[in-house]
Each structure stands twice: as C-alpha cells, then as structure tokens.
Design a protein around this nucleic acid. Structure first.
Lengths: 244, 244
DNA sequence: GAGTGGTCTAGACCACCAA
DNA sequence: TGGTGGTCTAGACCACTCA
C-alpha cells in the first residue's frame, strides 16, 4: 500500500490526489453533472486509503467544484436552471422580493483585444475577442448594463442567436454548449457617474451614481475566461457580501 | 470511550464538540491570542478520539476563529497590528501601493437607537448607543467617511480619548480593551451621490458618486455588535471581492 | 526529547439511496 | 440488499518548536 505517486514537488498525499482529480476535470474526463468514481475506487486506483481520497475530495467540495450526495455519489458541480442565471450575481432586491429577470441583447461583435484585455484574459494582444453588450432588466426595469468580453478561440460559435436562445444566461450557455464551467471570479467595485450614453440606456439622468462591477471569471486551474463590466443601478438593489 | 455528550439535537460528535468550544470562546474562557488546550487534552476530556476533536477544530480554523501553529498549538484568532487596522476593509489602491492610513475623529456621542438600528443590532429600541463619525485618510487624502454605531451597554468606556489613543483602529480597541472579537461581517454596497455635507468633508463636488458600504459585524455565536456605514471615494481605490 | 499539530491507515458502523 | 457518502476510532509516523 501507499506506493508514492510520482510528483515533482513535495505535497501531502491528499493534495497530490486533489491535483490529479483537478487535472481530470480540466481534461474534461467528467463533464458538469457527471458522477465521478467513488472514494473507494479512487483509493484502490491510487493505492491509498479511502480517508485520504476523502480529504482530497473534501477540498474540491469546499471550493464548490464538486458536490457530494449521500448515498448517491460525488458529482461535478453543475448549476441548476435557477442558480446559474444568477451565478456570481450578488445583487439583491432591497425588499427581498423574487424578481423576473430579463435580458436585452444590444450587440455582439468580433473585435481585437486591447492590451489591457489581453493581459487580463491572458491571451495574445490583438487576438480576436467576442464583445457583447446587453441590458439586464429586473421586473421589467433596466438595472444592469453589461459588457462582456470572451476570447473567440475558446468561445467558438457564440452569436447573437445563441445568446438569445439561452435568454441571456451566459454561464448556462458556457456550461451546456461549450463545457466550460466557471469556478471562481474576482470582482472590483467602484462608484461612477452615468455617462450620457449609459444614462440613456438605463433611463437615468446623466451623472447619476452607478455601481461599477468589473468581473474576471476563472475556470479550472485558475484560467481566466471571461471579462465583464456591469454598471448597476442601485436604487432598489444592493450588492451583498459576506466577509469572514 | 465515546460516551455520548448530552445535547438536545442530533448532531455529529465533532459538531457537538465544536459547539462546546464555541461556548467556551463566548464565555471568554480563552481570550484572543491565548492557546487553547491540545487536541489530545480535549479528546481525553470529552472521551472521544483525537481525530474527532481535530475535525471540530478544523471547522473553527476554516472560519478564522482559531489559528493552528504546527509544533506550538492552537490559538484563539487575534489580529496583528497591521491586519487588524484593515479588518474587513476591502478597499485597495488602484496602483496597488501600500498607503499611510490616518484617522480623523469628527464626533463621538451617546444617543438613543432608532428602530432600524435596534433591529439590526438586536437590542431594545431606544436603548443607548455610541454614535461615532470619522474620516479615514489614505496617504493624507480623505477617502472614507465613516459612521459607527455601537450598543453602549457592551461597549462601555468608548470615548473620543480612547479612540484617539488607538489611532482609530476600532477592532483593535474592541479586542484588546473589551475582549470583543469580530468573527464575520455582512456588507451591503450601493452607489450614491454625495450630499452637500459629505461632499464638503471629502473635498468633492455635490453629487459626486460614492461607494456606500453598510456593514454589520458579528462576534462569536452570530451576535451583531457593530453597525457601520462608510462612504468611499473610489477615484483611486476599488473594493475587491473574490467569489467562489 | 517531549509535546504539538499534520498526515495516513484500516477498519468499523451509520444514514441514505436505488434497484 | 449493496453501494455510496458521513462519522468515528485507535494507532502510527512525520514535521515542527522549544527547552
């Protein structure tokens, strides 16, 4: 038992196993929603005890990369119809009500990445990106003006029609159409005044205060995949954050 | 071995032990910075195995309530001089520079809690609160206008002089003077326009966009202890958030 | 060298689920 | 009923710290 697994760096066994599982996830060996082999199977395969495999999976579960279901198995995280629409969206209605979420696509074009974009998305400067603009409506009121940038090489086949077909649920489209799961995201928030153009789109006065949310989303292995800038009207909504 | 510990609800053993440890923390049995007994000691005391105690402490550690130090022991989380000043503060300089943080106390008075405050702090309406206003300066520039509300019964002896003595590091004062550790906080962010009064204090034009951060901080056992409203100038800073 | 947390094992029993 | 994850044990060895 416990034949050491060959890895360059010293790592606890359970982390080496975690790395192997992550590698399989990246390679697409199991897609979103699939069951992964049982703890016992992994234990046998890697020649370690079940408890060690468990600890590796524990970490993946705490990062929401994988979901455990007692009696059934462990599954690659997928995002339910309802949840995925709001993936990473922390905007909550002031009165706590559930709201109708609507999507109005403004444009979807191919263009060249600016240097700034290229650095953030870790792609070559000037390579082709998909540039999307859209309006999100909550209960029929425009609340968020979004700009989304995607590297075209990976996000093949993203068109206005596709987006419309998914009713603007971008992350659902990434997952089901392209097999791309977002694992985490970084956000930078500032307050800005609405420009004339933005004010017009959101039915505001020029200079009205807006919450600007810049988001970079990552897939397995800390690879940045999507850049987003949302300008949010926070008259009836707030951004909620829990700190520990 | 494994004599069941009497608790009303069914809980795994390690959670029952976690609850006992939390109770001791609330009672102040060990203060911030103190070492808690070793895993083996707890195991003997509670009649469980070391692994079970470990799992209980694991959870406390992952919540930053306790800190493990290999070879030394496990310690009640304390916050270093540098860290505690910025406890929960997610505002980062645009250029990533380290900054001088300065504090200018504007006022510190006793008043009666409004109904809204009372609900949020879970105190009786109309009970006495301490109402603090201050300005935070980054590199000598005013960036945050803070209002802080504390229940007076718990935060005895908080005066302008005390605050000045701690150079505005409120959480450090709570910890060292009152033995109150904040464990987590909820924040609500919106964008607002500066009122005339606020604009004046932050050297801005009236209506300038500001990031409004409302924060409720909790101590052990999910007890709200401090309410705060910060109005932040985000010309040279942004609020950083990592989503998982 | 004694004591601490960190890792790992082998095996047990439980709760849950599906066929 | 058999397989899954969830909990728990007892004991082992390691890495680190400090006297």
């Amino acid at each position: 038992m416990n034949e050491t697994i060959v890895t360059p760096l010293f790592q606890p066994l359970y982390r080496q196993i975690k790395a192997l599982l992550t590698k399989s996830l990246i390679s697409g060996e199991w897609g979103p929603g699939d069951a992964i082999p049982s703890e016992m199977e992994f234990a046998a395969k890697f020649g370690v005890s079940q408890g060690t495999v468990r600890k590796a999976i524990d970490e993946l579960a705490s990062e929401n990369i994988v979901v455990r279901r007692q009696g059934k198995g462990t599954f690659v995280a997928t995002h339910s119809e309802e949840v995925i629409k709001l993936r990473f969206l922390r905007l909550v209605a002031e009165d706590g009500s559930k709201e109708l979420l609507d999507n109005k696509l403004l444009s979807c074009v191919r263009s060249k990445a600016t240097d700034d974009m290229a650095i953030k998305l870790k792609i070559k400067p000037g390579s082709v990106v998909i540039d999307i603009k859209r309006l999100l409506l909550f209960s029929n009121k425009p609340v968020i003006l979004d700009r989304i940038i995607l590297p075209a090489t990976v996000f093949k086949g993203v068109t206005s029609e596709r987006i419309e077909a998914f009713n603007g649920s971008m992350y659902r489209m990434y997952e089901t159409q392209l097999g791309i799961s977002m694992v985490r995201a970084d956000e930078r928030l500032i307050a800005v005044g609405a420009t004339a153009e933005v004010a017009n789109l959101l039915s505001l006065k020029k200079g009205a205060p807006l919450l600007s949310i810049e988001r970079l989303s990552y897939t397995y292995g800390d690879k940045p995949m999507e850049w987003r800038l949302g300008l949010c009207l926070t008259d009836d909504h707030y951004y909620f954050n829990q700190l520990e």
